[in-house]
Write a protein that binds this DNA or RNA. Structure first.
Lengths: 200, 200
DNA sequence: AAATTTGTTGAATTTGAATTCAACGCCTTG
DNA sequence: CAAGGCGTTGAATTCAAATTCAACAAATTT
């Protein structure tokens, strides 16, 4: 037995995440094995069906992504700051961001794969709920004056960060992380009637 | 010789589009051949490298998508109507829309494939330019009172339609074509100060 | 410390797709 | 209508990945 059992599963999931981020949804068993530093037989021992591993890996990847965003909010109480931080944390840092690369690969696959579609839809809805809570608490405190209902604004905010994630990952010459954040903030300011300073 | 030469190339491109829409970026030569009603050898005769065919097919698919949107605008002069029509024509009708399915597959691949990244980036920019022209002419006519510069608003409009395209294709339970159009229109109204009636 | 279980390898096998190509039918041209 | 090239097929070959499994090593139990 090469490793403590508790980390074995995590190792496999992370290897699968890296492999899928690099090679896309059509990633090969051997590519996952290489990423894990094992042979294909060892992978198969734990996951007789590669698809199951990939689904688990993606689920874990989404959890991590979502959790990281929630964690970035910890300790921040000002609604405006919460909103700015959330917008910033939803965009890839640059086009090498592995976490977002995985999500992009998934998005392309979701149109043809029900399981991935369900996972991504659920992630989208959870992110919408996250924005909604921020907007509503900000409105309740009188900080924000919403231009419409919080659900509509939240859906648009998540949609914007999703789309700009793709633009950044595709290496758009002018739309980098900061430019995209500013574009989304532009909408956020408009719909909250709050100046939302970029710097805290 | 089975067919008139002028349609042969088009046939192949369309077969490749269908095959890639159905099977994703990892589509097999045989799948393209089956879509075309030929054997793999025949495909290889015209395109020794499948990747070249796929790139050409995607380029053609984007042209068609963009041209269809421009055509939908023909004869419409009222800026508000032009804006509404453009928003509507950018979204897939339903989750079976093959044209958008192809674009989604491409988007997922673009994070890992430079050629596709360039193609998609250019499509994005052209669509931004399309919105920009509409917004600026509407502003010049005094119909729209823009909340910011036209480029910013246009970038956000295209980003929204891209993202909602993915949501619709992933079969979101509540976000269908009309719901998404309404969400985008919500932003469009906000940023143009125009009521933008849904029905013409 | 022997026996058992767990995880892993590497080689052999199977599977399936890409590639190559000789042969063939159809269309065009001389 | 004969000759030549074009487009296509289907079979043979090559190539690459998935799958299977006997054997082995490390950890665990008894």
């Amino acid at each position: 037995m090469a490793r403590a059992k508790s980390t074995r599963r995590t190792d496999l999931l992370e290897a699968a995440q890296r492999a899928m981020a690099e090679h896309g949804a059509g990633v090969r068993l051997n590519q996952v094995a290489e990423e894990a530093g094992l042979t294909s037989g060892a992978i198969l021992y734990h996951y007789p069906d590669l698809q199951d591993l990939l689904v688990d890996a993606n689920r874990a990847g989404m959890e991590r992504f979502h959790d990281a965003r929630l964690k970035a909010l910890e300790g921040i109480t000002d609604p405006a700051q919460r909103l700015v931080v959330t917008i910033t944390s939803g965009l890839p840092i640059d086009e090498d961001d592995e976490e977002v690369r995985l999500l992009c690969a998934l998005g392309g696959e979701a149109a043809r794969n029900t399981v991935y579609a369900v996972l991504l839809t659920s992630l989208y809805d959870r992110q919408v709920a996250m924005y909604q809570a921020i907007l509503e608490s900000g409105a309740a405190q009188g900080e924000f004056v919403l231009s419409g209902d919080a659900l509509t604004i939240s859906r648009n905010l998540v949609a914007l960060e999703d789309a700009y994630g793709y633009r950044i990952m595709a290496g758009h010459p002018t739309l980098d992380h900061d430019a995209c954040a500013e574009l989304i903030l532009n909408y956020a300011r408009l719909s909250t009637n709050h100046p939302l300073p970029t710097e805290l």
